[in-house]
Every structure is written in C-alpha cells, then in structure tokens.
C-alpha cells in the first residue's frame, strides 16, 4: 500500500530523517514509536504527501507522490484519513460540519446521507448531540474524538493517527485507543504514532521505532520486549524509569 525508499528530510540544516525504508500493507495496524522530536509526525506527513522529502521517494498504491500533479495529489489524499496531533478541527465550523467535511468534499453522497453518517459516527465516538457546538466549546478529549470521527468517516483505505492521545488523561487515552480498535476495518491500513506503548499494545500488530534519524527497530512488541537492546527496553520493556534515574544520578555525580 505504502512504500518509502531512502526517505530523508532536513530542516534548517538539521537532519531529521535519513535513509528511511518502510513498507506498509493492507489490513495492518502499525505503531510508529520513538523519542519526542525524532520525526514521527514528519514521517507521517511525508507518507501522506503533505511534506516533500529532500531525498528518496514514497509510493502509495504504486504511484509516487513526486510524479503526481497538484490535482492528482489532492485526489490521492482523499484515500487517506488523518487525525492530527493538534486536533486541527476547523474553528469556523461546527462539530457536525467538521465531521461531514471529508464526505462533503468528496461529493459522492447526498446531504441527507452525509448527515446520517455524521450522526452515526458521532454516536460511535460517544458524542451524540454535540453537532451544533464549535470546537472551542469542547474539552481536549472531546476534540480528539471529533477529530477521530472526521478521520474515519470517509472509510479511507489508509488512516493515520498522529499522537492520538497527546495531552489526554489515562482514562480518555484508553477510550481513544478502544475507539481506534473498534473503527479499524480489516481492509484498511492504520498508522499510529504515540508514546503510549502500553495502550497501543492491544491495537498494533507491529511496530517501527525511529531513533537518531532512522529506523532503529521493526517487529512485534514481543520481539522488542525480548531484546537486550537498552534503547528498545526503555521503550518497550518498562525500563524508562530506571534509565531516567540512572541518567539523573550520572548527571549529579551519584554512583
């Protein structure tokens, strides 16, 4: 479905990603993990054609972003659904209009059908009756659920969830991952970036770990947990607290 070959990207002279090779298939749910600022969100934006890589290429359904015209790119992006890290809800639209927007833009459904689908999807994310509200009137968790409804309403074959639980409490985070799991269709590809490995576990089948600008690990959570690699153990094995303590102790000169 998506193939990335030798993807690299720099910003302001700083190399963020380098030589990233990845392949994603239909029906997969893949977790993209790594430390903050490693380029997870950037990689997601490169995969969906919002950002052009400095080197390498990304093909989606066998078509390279680089070879497409502006109109063809816009058309191909219709085959993606995306939940943005900062919600990215349109503040000049109501919740109902936000959720309906991908369907309205696609233009292949009647207004009545769109409304029915919006009500159905908002009910699924436990937000029925808020259609008329604006995003500024919602809590962080509600905004994430609206964004989730908007990302999935088009039933696109590829859905990207960019840090879907950032800034949310543990209960709401669990709810969001449960919803992602419920909304997952067997023929779609889902890519999830998050730091919340524990809650990702029941949802993701395999993981890609980005570290120091490249792909550091690819495999299942089980493989990562069994690894003796200290970096993998920090992320997957629950050693984060110990490593943190050791780092602090080192910095303070405590043996």
């Amino acid at each position: 479905m998506i193939v990335a070959k030798g993807v690299g990207k720099s910003f302001g002279g700083e190399r963020i990603l380098s030589g990233v090779d990845l392949t994603f298939h239909e029906g997969e749910v893949v977790g993209i993990v790594g430390p903050g600022g490693v380029g997870k969100s950037l990689l997601m934006k490169i995969l969906c054609g919002l950002v052009e890589p400095d080197e390498g290429e990304v093909t989606v359904f066998g078509r390279s972003w680089a070879d497409l015209s502006v109109t063809e790119r816009a058309k191909l992006r219709e085959r993606f659904g995306m939940l943005f890290q900062n919600y990215a809800l349109f503040d000049f639209m109501t919740v109902g209009e936000n959720v309906a927007f991908p369907l309205v833009q696609r233009g292949d459904m009647s207004a009545q059908d769109v409304q029915e689908r919006v009500v159905e999807r908002l009910t699924q994310v436990e937000l029925s009756g808020v259609n008329h509200l604006y995003s500024r009137e919602l809590s962080g968790g509600m905004k994430k659920r609206v964004a989730l409804a908007r990302a999935t309403i088009g039933e696109a074959p590829i859905i990207i969830y960019d840090d879907p639980t950032a800034g949310l409490d543990p209960v709401t985070s669990s709810k969001i991952f449960n919803l992602i799991s419920d909304l997952q269709r067997p023929d779609s590809l889902s890519l999830i970036t998050s730091h919340d490995i524990e809650r990702m576990m029941p949802v993701c089948q395999r993981y890609i770990m980005l570290y120091q600008g490249g792909v550091y690990f690819r495999g299942t959570a089980q493989e990562a947990k069994q690894s003796q690699d200290p970096v993998l153990r920090v992320f997957f094995g629950g050693d984060a607290v110990d490593v943190g303590r050791r780092t602090m102790a080192g910095a303070e000169g405590i043996s």
Partner: peptide, 17 residues
Amino acid sequence: SMVVTEQVDALRMCNAE
C-alpha cells in the same frame, strides 16, 4: 493560526485547496 494548528494541512487532506 490555521497553519500552526494544522487546519491548513487538514484542508489539504480533505482535498480542499
């Protein structure tokens, strides 16, 4: 402010120029 809150990216993802 729409750019920094990724609303412009969200427009692009919905095939809205």
